[in-house]
Nucleic acid binder design. Sequence first.
RNA 1: GUCUUGUUAGCUCAGCUGGUAGAGCACGUCACUUUUAAUGAUGUGGCCGAUGGUUCGAAUCCAUCACAGGACACCA
Length: 504
Amino acid sequence: MVFENKFVQQRIEKAQLLKDAGFNPYSNECKRNTTIDKFLNVNSDINNKENKRDENRHYIVSGRIKFFRIMGKASFIKIEDESGMLQAYIARDNLPEGFYNNTFKKNIEVGDIVEIEGYPFVTGKGELSIHATALRLLTKAIAPLPEKFHGVTDKEIRYRKRYLDLIMNSEVRKTFQTRSKVISLTRRFFEDKGFLEVETPMMHPIAGGANAKPFVTHHNALGIDRFLRIAPELYLKRLIVGGFEAVFEINRNFRNEGMDATHNPEFTSIEFYWAYKTYKDLIEITKEYFQYLFEHLNLPTILPYGDMEVNFENFTELPLIESLTTVGGIPSELCNDKDSIIAYLKSKNIAVKPGMNLGQLQGELFDEFVEEKLINPTFITEYPVEISPLARRSDKNPAITERFELFIAGREIANAFSELNDPIDQYERFKDQVDAKDAGDDEAHEMDEDFIDALSYGMAPTAGQGIGIDRLVMLLTNEHSIRDVLLFPAMKPIHHEAKTTEEE
RNA sequence: GUCUUGUUAGCUCAGCUGGUAGAGCACGUCACUUUUAAUGAUGUGGCCGAUGGUUCGAAUCCAUCACAGGACACCA
């Protein structure tokens, strides 16, 4: 039963008593004329006034009751709206006859949403408050709020019932306000640079653009399966072929993989593609982008993240192979020899999968010995071609690609490269991926013939980049779980008894 | 996927080597017209995550399962 809890029952009764007394427990008549933060700002001068009050000022504020202190014939309550918290002084003799004793004290309680009419004054203890001349119930809460001091701390409740988390933990709202700002600033930044925001399909006939397992869904009318997209990349590049020169898309990707502190099955990224540019230009625009974000979010350029301090004034570039030695401390002579790397990894007790090529092994060295040491923003460049199936080869050295990944606080934040636009090279690389897939790699790419077709019409030299928005927000808000920057993170369903027995 | 730690009242938490459940907040009743987690008095409130087992007896011991947190593996 949904409403069987005794506290809920009690509150439903109170709602009925209010209804019987002529008060609609779900009234729609809102007369609010100011928000709480405005009230507090506008009336900050009250403390200097005679009697510390001004009965000529008249306000109506609304909010949820968070504290309720009855002191006999008068009470203090605190109400909270989106902008802040305000104390109200509710005295019997300032309210209609009988309202205080019969209605307010008996049937109004913590959790209810009310509207308070009155004038500003400062209490004996010095708190700017509203002196109520009227109080109206707007919404009766029939579920009791969690404990007023500790609030909700249980992560499971906080994620499953985010609304409760938001009611009880106002700093959580700030995280999501920051997230929202990051997204709108990102949109504005790229629009101001002349990029066009586009929307490409989320249901793909072939899941491409990344190495990941897709979700499968079904189109009934066509009788065919579709994949939820794992990346928008291949569609955005088709648009560059079509003649758009700067496009971006901010939206969700879906990957059918494990969940942990940095992975949610659906996550938000921005990908942008820029014709007649190279990854060098992307390094510059990325620096500019971070500067823009920090400026508009008012963040300090030396940003704390956990135990770390990240200096955002100091972006550096470092070729991957060089980083193995200078950051990872790996002897440089073994970094270009397969067998030496395998021996080195084994000597460090790291399992090496059979059949890895040189590029993959270098990537392995980087992941093991370098990545977590890159605290200040670092563009790692010159990725081996074997681990960059969609990136353009360097003209000087065909074994490496014109690519970078940006690392901050020991984590990858962005991935970018000059795009491969040679259709025959792309075809060969897809074929290698198909072979890998046949050999059991279920994250390898499939052959996307239409994409090859598109490239064969000619794609202007283009640079493209992806940034994981969730992880970026984690970094900027000093959060350490992706679930704390997602309003409704993915959670397993709770199996009820009846359902479990049914399944067995 | 593996390991590990949790799950007790609406919420935050106690509960010893097995003997039939405890606090604070909230809620009910009473007192109190300037409180700040208001205070004082008093009372109600529990299928101890689920299922099985051991035992005369299980919140407590064992097994399985569910969910969550953390770590590792994979990945963005």
